[in-house]
C-alpha cells in the first residue's frame, strides 16, 4: 500500500470542490453547469423538437441525443483538434445510454431532445461531469424524468480506493483503475459503468459501494442548483396553480 496520501492531499473518499448551476445559458430551453476541480462542463438542452433525418424518428417516443465536446484549449496545453472523434462519439453514446433510463419522452413521439455538453477545461472525470450537468439541464428544460442521474468517477490507485480521480492520479506509476459510475439517485441503479485499468473483485465491490455516497453528494448539489433557479418560491400562501384561463 504505497499510496497512503493522495497527490492533492484529499481524503480518499473526498471529491474535488464542486460547483453546480442551472439556467446559465439563456438561449437554451434548459441548461446546467457542473464543475469538479478543474473539470468544467456546460450543458445546454434544446427541444423536444422535430427530428431530422426522419429515419431516426421513433413513432413510439422522443429520443435523446447527446453531443460531447472538449474545447481546443481545454486540455493540458496541446491543442485538442476540434471535430468528432471516436472518443467523443463514445462518450456521447454512453451519455445517451446513462440518461435515457430516467427520461420520459413518450408524450413527444418522433421528436428529439438535444443535449450539448462543452468543456472549457478538463482534468479527468469529464464524462461524469457531463452526465451530472446534462441531468441538471434536462430537469431545467422541464423534461419529464423519473429521477435524477448522478455521476462520479471512482478508482483505485496502487491498492487504495479513491473517489473522483484527477489526471495525475490516473497517470500514477502503479496499478491504477478508473471507473466512471452513473446512478439513478433514488434507486441507486447503475446506468453507466466503465473501467480502465485493473482492479480486484473485492476492491470493485468496495468502490461501487463508495460511489453511492459520492453520488449522493453530487445529487445534493444538483438539487441546490435547481432550487436556486427559483428564488422566493415556496414561501407563500396557497395559490391555485391552474388559474382560470381567458
Amino acid at each position: 500500500m504505497a499510496y497512503t496520501k493522495r497527490l492533492d492531499g484529499r481524503k480518499f473518499d473526498e471529491l474535488r470542490p464542486m460547483v453546480a448551476k442551472a439556467g446559465n445559458i439563456p438561449n437554451a430551453d434548459g441548461s446546467g453547469y457542473f464543475k469538479v476541480g478543474k473539470t468544467e462542463a456546460y450543458a445546454a438542452v434544446y427541444g423536444p423538437r422535430e427530428l431530422h433525418p426522419r429515419f431516426l424518428q421513433n413513432p413510439k417516443t422522443g429520443i435523446i441525443r447527446c453531443h460531447y465536446n472538449m474545447m481546443p484549449f481545454s486540455g493540458t496545453g496541446t491543442r485538442i483538434r476540434p471535430g468528432t472523434k471516436r472518443r467523443s462519439q463514445e462518450i456521447s453514446m454512453v451519455m445517451e445510454l446513462s440518461l435515457s433510463p430516467v427520461v420520459d419522452l413518450s408524450q413527444f413521439p418522433n421528436s428529439v431532445v438535444d443535449v450539448f455538453v462543452e468543456f472549457p477545461s478538463t482534468d479527468a472525470g469529464s464524462r461524469c461531469a457531463a452526465i451530472s450537468a446534462a441531468c441538471i439541464a434536462l430537469a431545467d428544460a422541464g423534461i419529464r424524468m423519473k429521477d435524477m442521474v448522478t455521476s462520479v468517477a471512482m478508482g483505485q490507485v496502487d491498492g487504495a480506493i479513491c473517489a473522483d480521480l484527477t489526471y495525475n492520479e490516473e497517470a500514477y506509476d502503479a496499478i491504477v483503475s478508473d471507473i466512471p459510475v452513473a446512478m439513478i439517485n433514488g434507486s441507486k441503479e447503475i446506468t453507466l459503468l466503465q473501467m480502465d485499468g485493473e482492479i480486484t473483485k473485492a476492491d470493485l465491490i468496495k468502490s461501487l459501494e463508495a460511489a453511492k455516497d459520492a453520488c449522493g453528494k453530487v445529487h445534493k448539489l444538483q438539487q441546490d442548483a435547481l432550487e436556486a433557479r427559483f428564488p422566493g418560491a415556496g414561501t407563500d400562501k396557497k395559490v391555485d396553480a391552474k388559474e382560470v384561463s381567458q
Binding site: A139, R144, M145, D147, M148, N185, F230, G234, K238
Partner: peptide
C-alpha cells in the same frame, strides 16, 4: 412543503 420547489425524483 406546499409550494416548495421540487426536482425530478424527489419524494
Amino acid at each position: 412543503e406546499h409550494r416548495a420547489v421540487v426536482i425530478p425524483g424527489q419524494v
